[in-house]
């Protein structure tokens, strides 16, 4: 993920490339937001404003879509984003204990970002990897068959 100072510099460029790829169409709003979110790490207010004027849509509408979908974030996130599956199949397979351990290890509650900007901890709905539950995603990496003991070692891999 790009540091926050870098965002302002390339925000227009990122939006432009998404618009060129998908076209200036209202129905392409979600793919455009997804791509900008992926490239910038989140959707800053100025990006939403720029997209709304490019697509000739009210800002309120762009923001209402951006805040609706879980994969889009309107807030800056940490350098590493932990997504923990908190659904029943992972819960029954021992996810409850792992989730408590994860909260303790990062000293974060669900939805929080650490003050030093290293971690964001969020829960996610089913990732479809239930056969190896409990499961979490850190950035793009999948970790399955989690146990409380594995947590410190896995977190230690990230700078």
């Amino acid at each position: 993920m790009i540091s926050q100072t870098g965002i302002a510099a390339n925000v227009s460029e990122t939006i432009q490339s998404a618009l060129d790829y998908y076209g200036y169409k209202e129905e392409e709003l979600i793919p455009i937001l997804t791509r900008v979110n992926r490239d910038l790490g989140f959707l800053p207010q100025e990006a939403l404003a720029e997209i709304s004027s490019a697509l000739k849509m009210p800002k309120s509408k762009v923001k209402s879509v951006a805040s609706f979908y879980h994969m889009l974030s309107t807030k800056p996130l940490g350098r590493h984003v932990i997504k923990f599956c908190e659904n029943a199949p992972c819960h029954v397979a021992g996810g409850r204990e792992v989730w408590l351990a994860l909260q303790e290890a990062t000293n974060l509650q669900s939805g929080e970002t650490s003050p030093d900007g290293k971690w964001s901890l969020i829960t996610t709905s089913c990732l479809g990897l239930c056969a190896v539950g409990p499961v979490m995603l850190i950035d793009g990496d999948v970790y399955g068959n989690l146990t409380v003991e594995k947590i410190p070692e896995i977190l230690g891999r990230y700078e």
Binding site: K25, E27, I30, P31, V65, F68, Y69, H70, M71, T124
Partner: peptide, 25 residues
């Protein structure tokens, strides 16, 4: 191919249609 952006409700068929149209699901 239209990719979603993380919303369980979009599995509901009319919410899915809204989402393809670029709106909240």
């Amino acid at each position: 191919v239209h990719a979603g952006a993380g919303a369980y409700i979009c599995g509901e068929e009319t919410a899915l249609l809204e989402s393809i149209e670029g709106k909240r699901g």
